[in-house]
């Protein structure tokens, strides 16, 4: 081997994989078919590092794989007991901070948050339930917004701006007061320009944004994560096309 290809390799859990200049660790891992758990990453959308599930150790230091550029010679630990336990704790916090009643949620079986909890072996929430009271927005005829299930991943915010060329959503407030808002004077979805075909309407990794009247098109037991692990589905790497009006 010549030195040139050697120069653009990183090591994830003892496996050497190539990367291209400008790729993040997540990009390189996905391209190589290595699963790094993630909830707020979507290929082609600007990464934010919100959910922290993709935390890996690079040369001993914890970083989010979706926002850290791959650089030559990185030694990365990903699928370790310690990291997966930390990811499980993060998942438990996401569950107890919202109102996640899987048996009554339309998204059950198609829900990456739920599948992540399965993947990490989560049996219970561990932390005290917060029972937050959050607003439901059923104003739109075809799209439902149930903030009880929102995990503030901001995928809808980014998808709307970067792919749909709109600006339907935003995160307002900080810390425990952070919440998903709709960018209209009334704050209601009905007054926004969101449409069923928008990525922002489909990208939600929980049951916070749902298309109405489709909830039970696929019966429980035949849904995505009834058939597949998130470690398989999470490797899908089709990169979305950004809206032409998007800022560079």
């Amino acid at each position: 081997m010549v030195t040139e290809p050697e120069a653009s390799l990183i090591t994830i859990d003892n496996q050497k994989i190539p990367f291209k200049h400008g790729q993040t660790i997540m990009d390189a891992a996905l391209a190589a078919g290595i699963y790094i758990p993630h909830l707020c990453h979507f290929p082609g959308i600007t990464p934010h590092g919100n959910c922290k599930h993709c935390t890996v150790e690079v040369n001993g230091k914890p970083v989010t794989a979706c926002t850290t550029l791959a650089t030559t010679g990185q030694k990365i630990r990903n699928d370790t007991v310690e990291l997966n336990e930390a990811r499980k704790s993060l998942t438990q916090m996401l569950f107890i901070e919202g109102n996640h009643i899987c048996p009554s949620c339309e998204k059950t079986g198609n829900c990456p948050l739920q599948a992540m909890a399965y993947h990490l072996g989560m049996l219970e929430g561990h932390y005290p339930q917060q029972h937050p009271v959050r607003e439901v927005d059923a104003s739109h005829p075809t799209i439902m917004l149930d903030r009880d299930r929102c995990i503030l991943c901001s995928l809808c915010v980014r998808a709307s701006r970067e792919v749909d060329g709109k600006n339907v959503f935003a995160i307002a407030g900080r810390g425990i007061d952070a919440r998903l808002i709709v960018n209209t004077p009334s704050g209601k979805l009905i007054d926004s320009d969101i449409e069923v075909g928008d990525l922002a309407a489909k990208i939600c990794p929980v049951g916070a944004i749902l298309i109405k009247e489709r909830g039970y098109d696929v019966p429980i037991g035949q849904r995505i994560f009834d058939q597949h692990r998130i470690s398989e589905i999470g490797l899908e790497n089709e990169i979305v096309k950004r809206a032409p009006s998007d800022d560079p």
Partner: peptide, 13 residues
């Protein structure tokens, strides 16, 4: 589910 996180009855919360 109900024993573990309150489940459907907890929707009254």
């Amino acid at each position: 589910a109900c024993a573990i996180n309150g489940g459907v009855p907890a929707m009254r919360n």
